[in-house]
Design a protein around this nucleic acid. Structure first.
Length: 565
RNA sequence: UGGGAAGUCGCCAAGUGGUUAAGGCUCUGGUUUUUGGUGCCGGCAUCGGGGGUUCGAAUCCCUCCUUCCCAGCCA
């Protein structure tokens, strides 16, 4: 531990525990070892970012190491696709486990030996109760369970049967290996928990080598012990399992005793986080796969245009504690905006175009203005923007009947076209149905660049795109997937709360030509519209689609709402 | 109703007997601004309730209340 660490007070209860352990000399080799242990049965989501940042962060802060361990003990649910996506996601966040990539399945041999030893010591037995009988004999939350009639089977018989289980001589569900602990324990996890069950399933890594698979409560603590994990951090729902964890690490012959600590999992309002629900959204085709930009998966987040830095900042800000909490979605958005504001390249893109014609500007003339890529960066590069007589501006930036406080374009009101000129609307052109098709205006040639010699001020500045020099692009506007704070709260079915407007497709937005120089991975800001990025999935298919990552804060929209406009 | 855990501002979250009870987000005034963005300045809690211990309690004790988790051969 270096001075930097000692100087800083622990920022959460886990850091305090670690510092106390370190100070008391309770940590072997003074090296703390953590692990991130996903089951490869789905894609990682934002909740995992909290766990990843915690485990890798703690190891980093205290000079220890963090293992990546796949908890692959249920072959029916686990797939290679998930193993690979998990690695990709952790790396994207900027963490690396070095050579410490492990699999619980690597320990099947050792686990099996330990199980045999338990049987020999009379601490485990083969049970032939059916699933239903087992359930009945387990008792209830308030009543003790009863011992299985097979509990006192001779050791030799247990040994023989367990070996037969391993050899595949018994069908699935016919028998299990159980620990002998205490059927009367008030803690259900201690009522002779299952250690091994039979599954004739093909395992992603061990193939058909095994047909008996160890359970979580047996595998996890022993895997931790094998890897010399010092602090095994998991979520709150495992608090009840801690006695089982301790039971396993106290088995004879296991000389390393990791400790389990629990923290509250991440919940965010307007989001669903459970794998089951996310898988459902994918299967029902409600979203475009696990990496749909509206999904809370890390791959979705990445495709949406959220930066890894902003995600890490987010989980750092929410803290780590033991009280169940629901973080406000607005904090997530804040973190994304804060990071993107510093690094996004600014571009002018008109999402809802309406034509603006400058009557006193020469027809056919093209003039170029210099636009700053990022005003937050004093050394920012610049690029050129073409200006012509006919432009597109946002329909919202012109009003025939301007509400109080509106200082954008309306007849007679002079405003600035960013980087270009001051213009004053003079008339509107309408079609037969009364819709505005074009706005006519005049410009002041003396305001070139957006300022005038007399220093007169204008209240509004609009972005614009040249009608002839700009390009058409497709834009996808994403919003929250759910419109209620706690999806499903009202009806019990979270699908009832799907936001019908979570995706709005704009097939022909108008963008300045500079957009052709953007690539997947670039962070962009469409001035006054929000942060955007080039969609990676469509780009791979040769199609240019821009995703809205997050909108800009919009105090005018808020004001309009307050005024009831 | 058995066991395990949690309750500090609208949302997170520091705080571990003596502080004006940190900080962030949200909200909200103002200011700056060639993005109604950003930045900057300001506002916003007496700690689930009730007792008690103490010169002094969010912090200790008692009691009550509320919420969450546990009865997979899932993790």
């Amino acid at each position: 531990m270096d001075e930097r660490v000692e100087a800083k007070a622990p920022s959460n209860f886990l850091e305090r525990i670690i510092e106390d352990d370190l100070a008391a000399g309770r940590v072997p080799n003074n090296t703390i070892v953590t692990r991130f242990p996903p089951e490869p049965n789905g894609y990682l989501h934002i909740g995992h970012i909290k766990s990843i940042a915690l485990n890798f962060g703690l190891a980093e802060k205290y000079g220890g190491r963090c293992h990546l361990r796949y908890d692959d003990t249920n072959p029916e649910k686990e797939e290679l696709e998930y193993i690979e996506s998990i690695k990709r996601d952790i790396h994207w966040l900027g963490f690396d486990w070095g050579e410490h990539e492990y699999y619980a399945s690597d320990y099947y041999g050792q686990l099996h030996q330990i199980a045999v030893r338990l049987i020999k010591e009379g601490l485990a037995f083969v049970d032939e109760l059916s699933a239903e009988e087992l359930k009945e004999s387990r008792g209830t939350l308030t009543e003790a369970g009863t011992n299985s009639p097979y509990r006192d089977r001779p050791i030799e018989e247990n040994l023989a049967l367990f070996e037969e289980m391993r050899q595949g001589k018994h069908p699935e569900g016919s028998m299990i290996l159980r620990a002998k602990i205490d059927m009367a324990s008030p803690n259900m996890n201690l009522r002779d928990p299952t250690l091994y069950r039979i599954k004739f399933a093909h395992h992603v890594r061990t193939g058909d080598t095994w047909c008996i698979y160890p359970m979580y409560d047996f595998t996890h603590p022993i895997s931790d012990a094998i890897e010399d994990i010092t602090h095994s951090i998991c979520t709150l729902e495992f608090e009840d399992h801690r006695p089982a964890y301790d039971w396993a690490t106290e088995i004879d012959g296991i000389d390393h005793a990791p400790r389990q600590y629990e923290f509250a999992r991440l919940n965010i309002n307007y989001m669903v986080m459970s794998k089951r629900r996310l898988l459902n959204l994918v299967r029902l085709g409600i979203v475009d796969g696990w990496d749909d930009p509206r999904m809370p998966t890390i791959s979705g987040i990445r495709r949406r245009g959220y930066s890894p830095e902003s995600m890490l900042d987010f989980v750092a800000r929410i803290g780590v504690a033991k009280s169940e909490s629901v973080v406000d979605f607005s904090l997530l958005e804040f973190c994304v905006r804060e990071d993107l504001n510093k690094r996004a390249k600014r571009l002018m893109v008109v999402l809802d175009p309406i034509k603006l014609i400058i009557d006193n500007y020469p027809e056919g003339q093209v003039e170029y203005f210099e636009a700053v890529d990022n005003p937050e960066d004093p050394d920012s590069p610049t690029h050129q923007i073409a200006f012509t007589r006919e432009l597109y501006i946002e329909a919202e930036d012109f009003s025939e009947h301007p509400p109080k406080g509106y200082h954008r374009l309306y007849i007679g009101n002079e405003v600035r076209l960013k980087y270009a000129y001051y213009v004053t609307p003079t008339s509107v052109e309408k079609d037969g149905e009364g819709n505005i098709v074009a706005i006519h205006c005049s410009y002041d040639p003396e305001s070139r660049g957006g300022t005038t010699a007399d220093e007169r001020r204008v209240r509004g500045t609009s972005h614009w795109v040249s009608a002839s020099e700009g390009v058409d692009i497709e834009v996808h506007l994403y919003d929250k997937l759910f419109s209620s704070e706690y999806p499903g709260e009202a009806t019990g079915d979270y699908l009832d709360d799907l936001n019908p407007d979570s995706l709005v497709i704009i097939p022909n937005a108008k963008a300045e030509a500079e957009i052709k120089n953007t690539a997947v991975g670039d962070y962009l800001q469409f001035i006054r519209n929000g942060y955007f990025c080039l969609d990676s999935k469509y780009a791979a298919e040769g199609k240019q689609v821009y995703n809205r990552t997050v909108t800009l804060r919009d105090s005018w929209a808020r004001m309009k709402q307050k005024m009831g406009i």
